[in-house]
Design a protein around this nucleic acid. Structure first.
Lengths: 203, 203, 203, 203
DNA sequence: TATGAATGAGCGTTCATTCAT
DNA sequence: AATGAATGAACGCTCATTCAT
């Protein structure tokens, strides 16, 4: 093996160790909540001692930070692609919902943590959470408004309520979604979209 | 004044003080989360010292217990009345949603705590949370099933998904609902019901 | 006993407990150095548990802070009185040395800590140490200069060196001085002054 | 090159590296104090990782040991030469002071550490510090006694106090002395000696 | 020689809880 | 009812040290 290849592999392995530990931490955070999780529990779950975590991370909080910011970075990559595609309001909504369930599928723990620890947005270190929430609101509520203007969505609804309805409905799903369960993320997304758009009433 | 009367009055006063302290605790729990809340913060908010809380309550956990069980007791009184009224599926759904938003209005903090600390249901002391969740599922999902059977609700939906959709939609509202805001609980309930039943699409 | 008297006594007792604990902490800091001292050692010496110290103090550092600032406050009360008395240079020097040894006698531990932890002066919290050092230098070196100008002290010495000579000579004594030893503080002060002024040579 | 020669060269190189690392460690110890210094800080200053230091040294303590014992060995080589020279008391005192300032000049960091960590003398590993202090006291106090007996030094002083006065005066200078400053070690030594012998008074 | 990853003991600190007053 | 002072367990984190590579 060439030296370059070895170096590359070493880098991957190092990044891989961090990634493994972050995934472990995310799992425990998601199950117990950030505050109720001790670093010893994370370390136990990873099969090392508590102090050893600090070789890889600065603090418990920095693990949380990395988990959340990593998730949001990926999320917005997907969202931005959708928003830049120039779709109509209903197609945009469908794409956003679909993308959201894909993210829930890929980052279940991170999403659950994000839902539960929203209050972090007030701390300077997690200001990007607040930023994300604003952009989030702009994207979804803007799409709803465009839909109303285009005559695709009902005009008799308070859009702020509708926005929250849609937002919560989609994201809270992370709290019960289990990958490998009865339905895959795509199926759930389609059913959710259908309920969202047409309700549960017989037409 | 008789001794019995004095005792009675003392009890009432004590109950009143307890109630005040519980409301204070619920407020802090709802804002910061149970684990992130210290008894000192509760005591500070109540204007007493931390140790003094233990004259009124056995433990921090017992405060949480009392808050949650008190809320659920009231909730089920309302739900049971609805369920016993012999209404059709859609009327039952409407009544349950309405009742839920009324509870959110009256017990905002308790609902927010209940949402966030759902994981407690696994602990023996909080087994009644798991019980309540089961009864909850039975009531809502049963109503949906009756509605499908009666030809009122769509039959092409996975009812477990629909149940979660409805449940989350309603209860997560407690995380942003503020009494005295733009809309009262009744208005929000009606809008939510409308979206739930008919979707956001133009018919 | 009147209520006012009880309150007063209670306050004294509370201040007394703090004072006791600070004296204990100062003793351990002086013996082992601040960094090498654990709060458990302080607590052991005080006969309580480590955590109990935090009922009285914010942190280990705040104990150090209180010890040093308390000492310096007292020191400067004495120095300022000397400097304001309008004495001649030699009398001022005599009074400063005498006052210094009195402070060493009264605040042995604090002085020893002050000597050893001078590097703290660089930290914002302990900026008053740097201030004190500046005022110190001004007071002593100014006195030496006045003495030279008045023809009382030798003019062939580098005054900065002389200042350090005098300063160190006096204050390092805290590292070996034991109250109740062979000589009292006044005797030591007189001998030191004599050596300082006339040297150890036979005249 | 022969194997023996290579080994020898390797040893020399290793000794050189050890010396470099010890100088680095001494610098950090002197600046921050032994306890407040982490091996990581030493390693950082040396441009290697903390663990790598253990290829060269057994422990942090052994670095300190080597620094202090190396300094004391050199110091006593000089002192012994002075003491064996058969000088009179004043000449001996002058030579000891001169020698001391030369050591301060050459081993500034070691001297500063020695001053600050005097308490180590109580530990078995550093018993040689206590030995050195005893020999030190014997040498200086003996010289003072000889001077008094010879009618060269004042007889009205407590010699134990005078010894401490002289000792502290000289060695504490290491805490502020910077090589390359306004005065060289010889100049400082002469001024200190002059103050020590004749005082700061005008004669 | 040096690294990367880990250990394990101990640190300063927090916090729910107790209890005499 | 409430306080002041303490307890004791646990927490997040640091750090000297080890060791396979």
């Amino acid at each position: 093996m060439s030296e370059a290849a070895m170096t590359s592999q070493a880098k991957t392995a190092a990044a891989g160790r961090r990634g493994e530990l972050l995934a472990t931490a995310a799992q425990v955070f998601a199950r117990q909540g950030y505050d109720a999780t001790t670093v010893r529990e994370i370390a136990d779950a990873a099969g090392i001692l508590a102090g050893s975590l600090y070789y890889h991370f600065d603090s418990k909080e920095s693990m949380l930070d990395e988990i959340l910011s990593g998730f949001l970075t990926e999320l917005w990559t997907g969202y931005d692609a959708v928003l830049a595609a120039g779709l109509g309001p209903r197609e945009t909504l469908e794409a956003l919902v679909g993308q959201s369930f894909r993210e829930i599928d890929r980052h279940r723990d991170a999403v659950a943590i994000y839902q539960r620890e929203r209050h972090l947005a007030g701390q300077p270190r997690f200001a990007y959470l607040a930023d994300s929430m604003s952009r989030f609101e702009a994207a979804w509520q803007g799409t709803l408004e465009r839909g109303v203007a285009a005559g695709e969505f009902r005009s008799d609804l308070d859009l702020r309520l509708a926005y929250r309805f849609v937002r919560d409905t989609v994201w809270v799903a992370a709290s019960w979604y289990r990958p490998g369960g009865r339905h895959d993320a795509g199926t759930i997304a389609r059913q959710y979209l259908s309920m969202l758009l047409d309700g549960i009433n017989i037409r």
